[in-house]
């Protein structure tokens, strides 16, 4: 900003130059405060070692048809169910119009026999019942969450109760015919 303009119009120019300095100073301050705040917030997100634990390998051979096991993955239970033909058929014959979170059974499994899902109710995070033969399985013969009464079907899809979505399917790959890696 040259001296001449300042002399021509001392008030206006002086004012806008000061405004400019205020704005740049404030912008600088905001960027500075933000760059200090971000590490302080981001430290709360999962740390590197927590992320490193995020795959689990599972051998499926011991699981008989009609049985289910629960494994831990990222601190959460994962349900692995070896489904019977009847269960698969029931899941596949469900009318999509009856579903809250519309998804076909085919979209939820890689191999029809093996249903792999995160065993956490999509309402507020309880572990639904239905893994053990003695458990209540709910009105749709799948899983039942006792916390606030959500019912899931043979494919882990939400059918009744407050949960908004189906039980989540994690990323997993079949390493061989009988082992999977979750995560």
């Amino acid at each position: 900003m040259s001296d001449t303009t300042q002399q021509d119009n001392p008030h206006g120019e002086e004012g806008s130059r000061r405004d400019f300095l205020y704005l740049t100073a404030a912008a600088f301050g905001a960027v500075g405060a933000g760059s200090v705040a971000w590490p302080l917030i981001h430290q709360m997100n999962p740390a590197a070692d927590t992320l490193a634990l995020s795959t689990t390998e599972v051998d499926l051979t011991p699981i008989e048809k009609g049985q289910a096991i629960t494994v831990m993955w990222r601190g959460k239970p994962v349900f692995i169910r070896h489904r019977t033909e009847a269960e698969i058929e029931a899941a596949r014959n469900t009318d999509l119009a009856d579903l809250r979170d519309k998804q076909t059974d085919e979209d939820r499994v890689q191999k029809a026999e093996w249903l792999v899902m995160v065993g956490i109710c999509t309402h507020l995070g309880c572990v639904p019942l239905g893994q053990k033969p003695s458990d209540i399985k709910g009105e749709y013969n799948g899983w039942f969450c006792p916390c606030h009464g959500s019912h899931y079907d043979e494919s882990g899809r939400i059918r009744k109760g407050p949960a908004p979505t189906n039980l989540a399917v994690p990323d997993y790959t079949f390493l061989t015919d009988t082992t999977i890696r979750i995560g």
């Binding site: 709360m44 997100n45 999962p46 601190g75």
Partner: peptide, 13 residues
């Protein structure tokens, strides 16, 4: 929720 937990479930963090 992940930020609050510092992980993928309620845990040590």
């Amino acid at each position: 929720v992940t930020l609050l937990w510092g992980g993928f479930s309620v845990d040590n963090p």
